[in-house]
Design a protein around this nucleic acid. Structure first.
Lengths: 256, 256
DNA sequence: CGTACGTTTGATCTTTCTCAATAATGGTGG
DNA sequence: CCACCATTATTGAGAAAGATCAAACGTACG
């Protein structure tokens, strides 16, 4: 509603894991940046690049990706608004993967040096950024498990659960379900399957009453059953173990 | 040869990615710690734990691991001497995965607070630790690709290549090859395969002349061909893009 | 209105898993 | 030093999940 800095989203993301003192918050908002509007498929970073800025996703979705020697693609994670897309590149010079827009959207480019200075001189911000990075690593570990040790049905169900909870934790979707910003082929590349098989699995889940679909809009008529099918537990998202000890069901009231 | 602090290994690991001023080096060596000897299979951290110390692997090997609801195990990474096993737990309270010893070995437990203070008050150490964490994340991304988009033969070949290069970069094995510290079942859990199939693939690689084996000792008669089979490029290990720009073939003279 | 992209469906083929059994190997106690 | 036991490695045969190939169908958009 109210006009706000594009970097407000970044602040929200950081606030998920730590409380930032208000001068640190201000420092984040005062970061220099330049805004860009991007189309689906546009690259934010390319594998091998040595980027001089750190892009923050302001709105829209993006994904991390790597391509094998024989040309198949693996999607490594989906970035949501507020994600700092290449923290990696702040401390490692050469990017080891690519980041592309999934939907149309906007990013704010922050000079690498400014971001780095802030992380190193403001312990609270540094802690928050490290926490974000560690949560991303935790999600990555869960993806290894998903792709390595679950069958197709569980992989898809797990991905849908993860996405729903992550969106919910950032207040990006309503109880009604959400708009999945990916094609079935992208879903396949995220789960290590083929698009043909993804299609069949989705139909299967729909037939079982675990999801319902109208185009890419997904709803969860039986959230509990979907979690079971996907062997999903939100623990690895670390949504409530930094500030608050124990469960905090209020975060996703309608999904518990 | 010379008696040295158990934390020397940690320092070596940090030095791989940054040059540390000598007072920072000393600060690392001055960290308080307690040493423990552990048998294979011993847990360093359990999923769900809230550990109060950060363990550094001094010698031997360990692995990160998660178990799915139906009981299958996925190995997420192999830790080598010098790895700080739970940096995660320094900034996130609840561990999202387990770490177990692969071989007999020793760890040095550093109090969480001491480690955290050092990271936050010494920018050079903080930078080095963040770099280590980011390289681990990069390796994790490559594992997602490996498990998600490569066939069995490539997965095994890739794993062998990665392990060889990582050991080499820390001077932990000779040109002759190395002692693989894993059973075929653990290899299977690392690659999302079954031990039966791992066995067949290993025999296949041996038959093709890409590796040779005497028990768990692996040699590489045709290193180039093995890399090709595994679609392996060491770029994602970030071994030479922090301090030094461009390739530095000296790191693994016999493996290039 | 047509074109491009995404989805859906069917038929067939491969890779990898499962189940089962046998053979090495290393460690241990006598 | 040797016999025994628990692990680990190896091999075979059959089953299954998912891939591949091919085609038709929708839908959005210029």
């Amino acid at each position: 509603m109210t006009p706000q800095s594009p970097l407000q989203e970044l602040l929200n993301a950081l606030a998920l894991y730590s409380h930032l003192p208000s001068d640190d918050q201000q420092a984040v908002l005062d970061l220099p940046f330049r805004v860009r509007n991007l189309d689906p498929g546009a690259y934010l970073v390319r594998e091998g690049d040595q980027p001089s800025q750190c892009s923050v996703l302001v709105n829209g979705y993006a994904y991390r990706q790597k391509v094998t020697g024989i040309g198949s693609r693996q999607i490594l994670s989906v970035c949501v608004p507020g994600d700092a897309v290449d923290l990696q590149n702040m401390f490692l010079s050469i990017s080891d993967h690519s980041v592309q827009m999934l939907t149309r959207g906007t990013v704010a480019d922050v000079p690498r040096q400014a971001m780095q200075d802030m992380v190193l001189t403001r312990p609270a911000v540094g802690t928050a950024i490290i926490q974000l990075t560690l949560v991303e690593a935790s999600i990555l570990r869960e993806w290894v498990v998903n792709v390595g040790r679950r069958d197709a049905r569980a992989r898809i169900a797990h991905l849908l659960c993860e996405f729903a909870v992550r969106l919910e934790s950032r207040n990006l979707h309503s109880h009604e379900g959400f708009e999945l910003p990916m094609t079935q082929e992208q879903l396949a590349d995220a789960t290590g399957l083929t698009s043909v098989h993804v299609n069949r699995v989705l139909k299967g889940l729909e037939g079982e009453g675990l999801i319902s679909r109208r185009r890419r809009h997904i709803q969860f008529p039986d959230w509990r059953a979907l979690q079971d099918a996907g062997d999903f537990s939100r623990r690895y998202l670390h949504l409530s173990d930094v500030d608050i000890v124990g469960e905090r069901p209020a975060v996703t009231p309608n999904l518990v």
